[in-house]
Design a protein around this nucleic acid. Structure first.
Lengths: 215, 215, 215, 215
DNA sequence: GATGAATGAGAGTTCATTCAT
DNA sequence: AATGAATGAACTCTCATTCAT
């Protein structure tokens, strides 16, 4: 039996351990791992997982929340450093944003599952809370963006971010192929058939922001 | 026992029946219906489904392919009717495109499942073929767009369409909530908290196309 | 894969096989066996069990129903052969009844579980239907008893049977010890401490019926 | 953390608290409550329960023992007050007995679980001890009954009580339906389909005792 | 003496797919 | 060609009990 996590910090740590295992296994298996796997990976028992999370999906919602929190924090800093005017900011934003996205290997794959899988199995209140948090965060970030680029109203800044987010999600899903298929393509020398997520997102974001800058 | 489908037309019809049932049940159930349900709805037996499709997911891939074909045909006509110049075409395109999207109740919900669910259970070659068809179709359409708006190279026209598609997919997933949650929100008088897919997509497409028109 | 049960008879047989396995294992294990055990014992797969029964508890409800049906059929004959007058019938009834009870090793143990376990896990409609069938059967039997012993009204004859049934159930539970405990007692030479179900039920039924005969 | 219970009285009190919580929750939940619930209801921790009881079932065995002790004490007084002769005592006994039964809301429901659930999870020695206590108590009570009604030998008096007890247990289980099902029936206006425990037990006890009086 | 974190066996059920008829 | 019976892997979650603190 592993040492009991009694202090609040120890509990927090244990929770983080489960999330870390979930992240690792999700990347390995390319799908939501079984709770048994997560427990085994953490070196704790299956039942213990359920002391920290109400359901399997909640683990991944927590992981997603974590990833999002990091991303948003970093985005705040990124926005503060964007050059003026807005039309000049598009490319630096796209570059910086893509770097941030690459820092979490799980964010985009999980996001792609969010609607299809997590939503089906998450209690509605949690799901709603998550979505509202996300909306809130976008709104806050939009506020900062509007402060920096005064030509943007807070509402249209938030909207620009929402659209950027949607573009990210949509392009990721359109351009990404299962790892196995990618290997296949490369072996066949057909890699060029595939769109490149990074390049496309950069291009699309620039257009979107330029579009916004014209208004 | 229903009569055997011997002629090629009869087989084709049977296949279409399964797809139609799949579509109907998908809309009803808000998730991929069980094969047993599809068979029952068609009035045939479960095993028969597998004479026409290799797997459950293939039925929905076929359904998606159908929806896409219709959409692309209609988009061709839409593009031909867009006003000049490109900057003036954004809004008419967005309006026309949204109308087309609304004509297939299944297209967007299925698309939202595509990556998460269908990709997991579809044999790689089929998946690849589908994705390449989609790329091909976008490319063809991009060609037509470039013919009409000569400032766009075929490549950048295709790209614009890819980005528009990604925006559609991403915004749909970001703005859509499960039906049950929506009901919940409306009862609570919180409907205004939700983004409106149509409005956002229109706005985003306009910005994207304007952005493209500036280049 | 075992041969498919296609004809109605073959299906009936398969269903009976599952029930027979359930009976055998229940006796062996002294508790409701797992569905996996029943399937294994039948030589079929777990999922197949669920083609024939909606839940584990329903298997045992079916077993109980079967046992009851046999008992009631036999009781009808027994009643027809009871000597007159009623006061002389008590003992023959008790003797005959006890012989019948001994013919199903599962009836009483299952009955003892009925309220405590099955009721908790059975859908209410099934439970209700079962209880009503039982009441119905007792009533029918009461009718026959009243025909034979004209001093009994149908209502009081049914009541007498209900009370006899209750006595059976109650005495079985009061006098029966888990098999392991019985062994223990006998090894300790303490067997005489235990009441004997058969003797007690005989005595009690006689008193009950005599009491009824006096009215 | 509640104060440690150091004195014997404090420990006894704590034990009683657990039993009281168990009783309350059993009535509320209509099934054996979880240990966590009992602990929470008492304001102590789960582990503490196991300092006072070896298992969950032992709590309920203690509860049952308590209820039985009260019942037997009261029965002694009831027996002393029964009118002569025995044939006249049946009805007063039944009436008095039923009143006593109603004084413990938990006695009968727990009894109905005794064989099915408690016996499965109780260590054999405890179970045996409990059953022997019950037998002993019935025997003692039988002795008093034989003193009052000299036509009854001590053995047959004890037997009469055993049979009365069995009748109680059996009728309770036969006539009782889960609360939810009862509600269902009443809504459907089918309440009359159900036997009435009190009426049936009264009638049956009278017959049983009259039968015994004839011997 | 009290705590409550950790345990982990245990079980029921679904459903896509196969294949004997 | 159609059938539908059989398959069996997959997976979550509960909760009585233990034991380190």
């Amino acid at each position: 039996m592993k040492q009991n996590a009694i202090s609040a910090e120890a509990k927090q740590q244990r929770r983080a351990d489960f999330i870390a295992s979930a992240r690792r296994l999700f990347l390995q298996q390319q799908r939501l791992p079984a709770v048994a796997d997560i427990a085994a990976d953490t070196g704790l028992a299956k039942g213990t997982v359920y002391r920290y999370f109400q359901s399997k999906e909640q683990i991944f919602l927590a992981l997603l929340t974590q990833d999002f929190a990091e991303l948003f924090t970093a985005l705040e800093r990124l926005i503060e450093q964007l050059p003026q005017p807005l039309s000049e900011a598009a490319e630096p934003f796209a570059d910086g944003y893509l770097k941030l996205l690459q820092q979490s290997a799980t964010l985009l794959p999980l996001l792609a599952l969010l609607n299809a899988v997590l939503e089906q199995n998450l209690p509605q209140p949690q799901l709603l809370a998550f979505k509202q948090q996300l909306a809130q965060a976008l709104d806050t970030l939009g506020g900062k963006l509007a402060v920096r680029f005064t030509q943007l109203s807070p509402a249209s800044a938030s909207q620009l971010l929402l659209h950027s987010y949607a573009l990210t999600l949509g392009l990721y899903q359109s351009t990404q192929l299962p790892a196995a298929v990618q290997t296949l393509l490369q072996q066949a020398g057909l890699a060029q058939l595939q769109w490149d997520f990074t390049a496309e997102l950069t291009a699309a974001l620039c257009r979107l922001w330029w579009g916004a800058a014209q208004e």
